[in-house]
Amino acid sequence: MGITFRKETFRDDFTFKNSPEHIKRFPFPFHEDAYMYAVNIEPHVVGPKGSVLENLIDVDEHYVAEMQDRALVLAEDPLRCQSLPHMTLAGWDLLELLMEQQASGYPEHFTLTRDGDRWRWINRPLGIDDTFTFGDTSTLPYGPMEYITRQSQGDFCILDQRDGNLWMDAGMVTTQADWSLDFDIGMNFFEWHAPVPLAHEKGIFVRALKFLTNIQQGKPARRLNWTMTINPRLDTSPENYHKWGPDRTTVTPENVGDKVHLRVELQSFWRLPRSNGIVFPIRCYLIKMDELVTQPKWARRLHRVIRDLPDELATYKGLTRYRPTLVEWLSKLDDGSPTSPGFGPD
């Protein structure tokens, strides 16, 4: 039995929704009733059946709609996908990784067959059946990174490792939480994180870089990050901030449940075998408040986290304008009873 892909939009009429099964598998990011930065990196190993970790590269009911939204973003702004000249080999590494993972996790939807360098890739949800020569860019309609990331959920950054640092030298970034690949491409790990408040002083990035530069092939790692988005909009890029920014003024006590979305990024980190680069998929999950609060523990916990969030973090995450309305709405769902440890619903 395969996935039933939803027909939905992430712009204009915003018809995006999660099915009841998808609400339960949502990667709720708070393991306790408070939030502060931490180097919360752990091995990226397979998790329980039915969770977003059932496969290391997750494909879900939003796959087809997300790929359609990505195509719209790229048609408008091709600079959301860039690869510096020395990154083509890493692009082939990524193509191999994503084809292998998607084909082994979802054989009813994806098939990869290999005869030496002649590869055949069948992507049934998107109606693709291509035969190409691995390593020969002229046999694909796009460069290898762009080809496969037009067929894979989430943003992808490919980092080159040199001089003891990681360099953001290629990426497909159309569903980002307010950072610009076009501006940041070519920067090192500390430079592209420069605008993040508080974390530099806590030494977070020094420790994170040390961890990441030591990642070994076949031993990926992961972490969760989060923010909030008004309307289920994937493209919250700085490029279009003047278009989506006004959404933040539209939150009222009546529409919080439908408009305000928790946005969770499942970030994973994989060593690439030929290029020795690291690929950093940033998989975005959205859930509207009405859906989230169907799990009473999540409602209570989210209330406490948002209420107690340090102002600097609330500002950085862009919550300031609607935080009071959101906290007031969530407070009605928090009877003060304790929440059980861990991420999952009760």
């Binding site: 003047h242 920014g245 006004p246």
Partner: peptide
């Protein structure tokens, strides 16, 4: 980098 200061 210049980012719209009153986008919202």
């Amino acid at each position: 980098q210049g980012v719209c200061i009153n986008a919202e």
